[in-house]
Design a protein around this nucleic acid. Structure first.
Lengths: 264, 264
DNA sequence: CATTCAGTTCCACATAGTGAAACTTAATTC
DNA sequence: GAATTAAGTTTCACTATGTGGAACTGAATG
């Protein structure tokens, strides 16, 4: 789906690049810090900051003289989450799965080659909106990431594969496109992915893609646990439940219509 | 703080106006629907949609031919929520208050004259009423809205007052700027606001502003319940707890520093 | 088959964004 | 406390970028 985002062309693209950059720094940043990261001339960047701040997309802290992503984004994201994510549709199914599995459930979608978590059900604690939703993770070393990559169509897939960082988070992380592609072939064959402590030591999961009409990737669903609590063998027992839930969600998503004024 | 957002000047502003519009419709919309709402010529609007879609700020549904706010917003909002909202800082305080009060707690901030909810803690027995992070509400008829309006500085305040809709949600809603201003004077005197079923029938709340250095409005905090469960008189008993919590949050917020590489 | 309406492309035009450089502050150094 | 550096802000001629009227496509409707 989303090919590499056109970066740099158009004023809007530039503005969003800046936003991404600021957001990516994970803390309020000074103007000069950002300036150092980009090739944009000072004056241009400056005006961009001004505009974005005036628009509420950035928030300026007068005392500390720092910029951070603004609250307008939170407001916009609320709509995005409700309308464009699988979360609202998947909710009842995930609740049920969480209850049955007694483990943490993740619902993720692809955003520009990365895994974007849109919902999470914790074994015990309730949902916390943007503290969980909106998080991003790597595609090549998470269960949901691999599940989605495996079923993406040709070009987006190869682009995404090429753009992974292949940083070795753990000793089990797949660290090359080749290794990843081999794994993806398996996953495609099985319709199902594992995370064998590839992203975090001690953390394992099973994941399934959510496919519309059995082909187009809409997202992925995973059940996560730790090697202390459980094991891959144990987790596998939940495979049928996971697959069924994923299918149910896909079904619901394709059927789902927003309440529209009935036509004619 | 945020004066009326400059609308229309600059390409970025235009793009964001469109985003707001789409988000505001609360469901995926067709191109023509949006076109009908704006004065922008067709070709211009069209290109804007294309750009925003390519950027992941809008998501296009090929089958239904509709646009909705895109997932990139969710990702950006995650950062915004963590860095620019009071929620992460306020969290422990709110948890404590929620436990003690046994009622629903809302944490809100101002966004362009409207109330933006940034966190919510549900009581064990959930009142039927959905408001989550990112949701917006009216300023003139909610506890948190009035609490914030009351303590805003001159110009932003009068602008905000002028821009409320004054729609009569219930029989108790304040429906004129004059009525609101009178109410705000009381609130300013008391440091404290009520919602007397002004937004939803049967729903009442007490709210307190969160003021940095006792002056600048950072947000507001409320305890909500229903007339069936409780009463304003009952709620008032929680006033000291609410005020103390608000103060604690203000304190924490002004102190709070993001983990920065120590300088020097 | 004609008509309408939603969506898309085209292109001359000018607005809006660009960026080198100069300027103003504030913080540091000598 | 004058000199130096760095961060932030303003200016302005230039042109890249976005604009929008109009014409085109193509599907749906009568």
């Amino acid at each position: 789906m989303a090919a590499q985002r056109p970066s740099g062309d158009g004023t809007i693209a530039k503005a969003l690049d800046v936003l991404d950059l600021v957001a990516g720094m994970q803390r309020p940043v000074r103007f000069a810090e950002v300036l150092a990261q980009v090739s944009t001339p000072k004056a241009t960047l400056y005006r961009l900051f001004q505009t974005l701040t005036a628009q509420g997309m950035l928030q300026y802290d007068v005392d500390r003289q720092t910029y951070a992503p603004g609250l307008r984004l939170v407001r916009l994201a609320h709509s995005a989450w409700r309308q464009s994510s699988l979360a609202p549709i998947a909710r009842p199914f995930i609740d049920k799965l969480a209850e049955k599995a007694g483990e943490t459930i993740h619902l993720a979608q692809m955003d520009n080659g990365q895994v974007l978590y849109v919902d999470k059900r914790n074994a015990a604690s309730p949902i916390e909106m943007f503290s969980q939703a909106g998080k991003v993770g790597p595609g090549y070393c998470t269960g949901v990431g691999k599940a989605m990559l495996a079923f993406m169509s040709q070009e987006p897939q190869s682009q995404a594969i090429a753009r992974q960082s292949y940083y070795a988070y753990t000793a089990h992380t797949l660290t090359s496109p080749q290794a990843l592609e081999a794994e993806l072939a398996d996953i495609r064959a099985e319709g199902f992915a594992y995370d064998r402590e590839e992203h975090e030591p001690g953390i394992i999961c099973i994941a399934a893609p959510i496919l519309s009409n059995g082909t187009r990737v809409m997202g992925a669903l995973s059940i996560t646990t730790s090697v202390q609590r459980s094991s891959l063998k144990e987790l596998q027992k939940l495979k049928p439940d996971l697959l069924e839930t994923a299918e149910r969600i896909a079904e619901a998503a394709t059927t789902w219509q927003f309440p529209e004024p009935e036509k004619g």
